[in-house]
């Protein structure tokens, strides 16, 4: 257990590096904050694309258009066959008239054009909604392939390309964030490690005396580990602060972008603190053998 005098000593020493080298530490934190900002932006984009993908999948549905020459009975027989396909949640019959009305509603003021038509050109169709589990690209394709073979069916439409592209881009951004994350990780560890090494070099005599008089390695280490963690924390806070400012400045133009939740902000900063810890830990490996160069 630490005594009270030890605790207050450790607390003071943890901030000593900041006091002694305000400029170096400040610049370090800014540089790291900027690097972490890049990472944060990439992560934010990845998150948002994930949201969009999930939403697009929710809205995924299928229109099965039927041949025009089918009788009502033939069409009616199709409905139960569609309902039993695995992944299909609901089947709605859309008559040519309903389709025309829907079309008219979509055209709005221009709907008058349709009055020029002698007969309704639109085919009858079934609207399939899918169960959440069947909204992946593969299962949607499987359903399509099954239904496409039926001779009653003329065409099947679904928002495949959009989801396809979205899925690809989400994957790319996820990879980019991962790579950027790795680079930022290594860079941040390196930078923090260097500033902590500076502090330790400046304190070489103090460390030596601590070893001589029997301070434990844990005790000697603590302020330097703390310094790295504080730097990581501040850099993370700077990154989040810059992101918030950017959100405030460009928010209306970006529209609909979801910012990090408080828990995610906490997680991000925890990640930065861990970075700091690893950085300072790697800094002191060579300094803290029990050798005291007597």
């Amino acid at each position: 257990m630490l005594s009270r005098s030890q605790t207050s000593y450790l607390f003071r020493e943890s901030f000593a590096g900041f006091h002694r080298r305000k400029l170096t530490t400040g610049v370090t934190i800014l540089i790291m904050g900027s690097a972490l900002l890049v990472l944060a932006i990439l992560t934010l984009i990845t998150f948002n694309m994930g949201h969009m993908l999930a939403k697009a999948r929710q809205g995924i549905d299928m229109r099965v258009f039927l041949r025009a020459d089918l009788t009502d009975t033939q069409m009616a027989e199709l409905q139960p066959r569609l309902v039993v396909i695995p992944g299909v949640k609901d089947v709605t019959w859309i008559s040519p008239e309903m389709a025309l009305n829907e079309f008219k509603a979509n055209l709005g003021e221009d709907a008058g054009i349709l009055d020029m038509l002698d007969e309704n050109p639109l085919p009858a169709s079934f609207h399939l909604t899918l169960t959440p589990g069947a909204r992946g690209l593969d299962s949607v394709r499987a359903i399509r392939d099954e239904v496409a073979d039926w001779e009653e069916v003329s065409e099947i439409l679904f928002n495949q390309q959009w989801i396809d592209a979205l899925e690809q881009w989400t994957f790319r951004f996820r990879m980019a964030s991962l790579i950027a994350g790795l680079i930022v990780f290594v860079a941040a560890v390196f930078v923090i490690s260097n500033t902590v090494k500076l502090t330790m070099a400046a304190n070489a005599r103090v460390i030596q005396i601590q070893k001589l008089v029997g301070a434990t390695n844990g005790f000697i280490r603590t302020p330097y580990l703390a310094e790295g963690m504080i730097q990581g924390f501040l850099a993370g806070a700077v990154a989040m602060g810059l992101l918030a400012v950017a959100g405030w400045l460009f928010g209306d133009r970006l529209g609909g972008i979801e910012f990090f939740s408080p828990a995610q902000i906490g997680g991000f900063i925890l990640f930065c603190v861990t970075l700091g810890l690893i950085g300072s830990w790697s800094a002191m490996r060579k300094y803290l053998t029990m050798r005291s160069e007597i």
């Binding site: 630490l2 005594s3 009270r4 005098s5 030890q6 000593y9 103090v206 005396i209 601590q210 008089v213 029997g214 301070a215 005790f219 000697i220």
Partner: peptide, 11 residues
């Protein structure tokens, strides 16, 4: 005092 502080002697 430093020599005592770092080994946890009360103030």
């Amino acid at each position: 005092a430093f020599a005592q502080l770092v080994v946890g002697v009360p103030r």
